[in-house]
């Protein structure tokens, strides 16, 4: 597997970002296919291309440089590009460990959580992803069914913090010992103290930290 730097240089990244913001999904797809073909590792692809570009798109939206429609288009394109990685992602050797990753109710930004579930898969875990806007009761029912070792919760908008806390409380009621990971762009603006007050809850700021955490697990 080749290093990310040797394949994804700054010029190529900027071209990709430009195509992503312009909604040129075919061009984005070709670039990702080319990187996969050249042997770029999945982890590098996720952190150096998908995560970096989506952070940048989010910042552009927050600073009123692009419209919400364009942000959603870039997200949809990235979401569809993940499909290119899946044939090799799910073929990795299994460890027998399981994780359930989800967004709480009213959270419609799913791509970050989905990438987290994928990184679990990359490390041989079964990374079950429940999607955006998942009611707490549905999530708990699924946890009972799958019996994961870890549950991951994503928060993109700080205004949804109370809903996330509700999810944590509902999970804790049935699974007091369950390891919980929380993350998402909302925590750049606050909310960390609130989630840390729940025992056994760890904040994961980015995919790199998740990688380290899983490597140590």
């Amino acid at each position: 597997m080749k290093s990310a730097d040797s394949m994804l240089n700054e010029e190529l990244y900027q071209e990709y970002l430009k195509a992503l913001l312009a909604g040129r999904h075919k061009e984005c797809r070709e670039k990702v296919q080319m990187l996969i073909h050249k042997g770029m590792g999945i982890k590098d692809l996720y952190t150096d291309l998908f995560q970096r570009s989506m952070y940048e798109v989010g910042e552009l939206w927050e600073n009123n440089r692009i419209t919400v429609a364009r942000e959603h288009l870039a997200t949809s394109i990235t979401d569809s590009l993940l499909n290119l990685v899946y044939p090799s992602l799910f073929a990795t050797a299994r460890t027998g460990k399981k994780a359930v990753v989800s967004c709480s109710v009213n959270e419609y930004h799913q791509i970050g959580a989905k990438m987290v579930a994928d990184i679990f898969e990359l490390h041989g875990w079964d990374g079950h992803f429940l999607g955006a806007n998942t009611p707490a009761e549905d999530m708990v029912r699924f946890i009972h069914e799958v019996k994961p070792h870890v549950v991951g919760l994503s928060l993109s908008l700080l205004s949804n913090l109370d809903r996330l806390k509700h999810h944590i409380e509902v999970i804790r009621a049935d699974f007091p010992q369950m390891d919980l990971l929380v993350g998402g762009q909302a925590f750049r603006w606050g909310g960390l103290e609130a989630v840390r007050s729940y025992g056994g809850t760890q904040y994961i700021p980015n995919l790199e930290r998740l990688e380290t955490t899983l490597a140590e697990a």
Partner: peptide
């Protein structure tokens, strides 16, 4: 637009499940 986006997400999530099931 919101509904199309939601449908697209559902489709991508289903594709993920399909890839995962295929691998299994």
């Amino acid at each position: 637009r919101g509904k199309v986006q939601s449908l697209n997400e559902d489709l991508n999530n289903l594709a993920r499940k399909l890839h995962k099931t295929n691998a299994q």
